[in-house]
Amino acid sequence: MADALRNLLEVRDLHVAFRTSRGKVQAISGVSFDVAPGEVLGVVGESGSGKTISLLAVMGLITDPNAEITGSIRFRGKELLGASNKELRSIRGREIAMIFQDPMTSLTPVYTIGWQIAEQVRAHGPETAKQARDRAVELLTAVGLPNPGEAVDRYPHQLSGGMRQRAVIAMALSCNPALLVADEPTTALDVTVQAQILDLLARLRRDFGSAIVFITHDMGVIAEIADRVLVMYAGRVVERANKRDIFLEPRHPYTHALLQSIPPITGDRPRRLKSIAGTPPSLFAMPSGCAFGPRCTSRVAACSAVPGLTGEPAHQAACFVTGMR
């Protein structure tokens, strides 16, 4: 059976809606994607496009009681949507690990990083406290924290942002997860540290063999790390292809626009994209038809309907004008 499963993760027709005081909002509408073992899937889109929510849904970490989640999320062939808390917990941290955007707030301030790594190790294995601590030192060494034997007893506030993110990555890798979800892990860091963390992730991917879902709003980061790319807009996938096709033959006007916004190779990388005219639609005022329509320069009459993904399986886009039929 294992041979039949080419994909580690298969997400099909994922919908996430939130009931709010102003009515129900559809944050994710029919997102589907696969992650193969060992590959890096880049998920890109402006802020609010649903990148985080999609992957939190995969982790079973949407805790908002007003959320409605439908679709199918299969990990190693096993359905995760509707799985019990206990089943999810044994997968979380052990088989799928996640690192978050802001290393300043993603560690508990009152425990040493060694304690926090050991907590994860011991949540999933029979290790003793001593063994877990040794493992923590080993992991901190692997992620290149200087002086790991000492760093293991440091509190988060005693480390710089870059060092904290390394510690968070060490923690995420503690159980050799098959899949690592990295939600904008470099966005809160300054440029040189960003580059170091990207290098680190690329190296760890080789050493640990984990597949990575890398969430970012930055096409420049995608260029450096991704194998395949998922472009998201307003809760939908608008284009998916391998990296080469995304950069050389982008089909969706939104992908085009994102590519235009990559800063020159030299100079600082801005934290937010700014060169696309207009703003993403509010979930409360979704345009009927193509959500990108109001900002699109290639808009035609057909765009008043919602486009589906079309094209050969390896490269699909959701656009009536430029998508392949």
Binding site: R92, F100, T108, Q120
Partner: peptide, 15 residues
């Protein structure tokens, strides 16, 4: 509601 609680959940720590 803090981020570090989400981290702890992502680690597979019990509620």
């Amino acid at each position: 509601q803090e981020d570090y609680i989400r981290t702890a959940r992502a680690k597979g720590v019990s509620e």
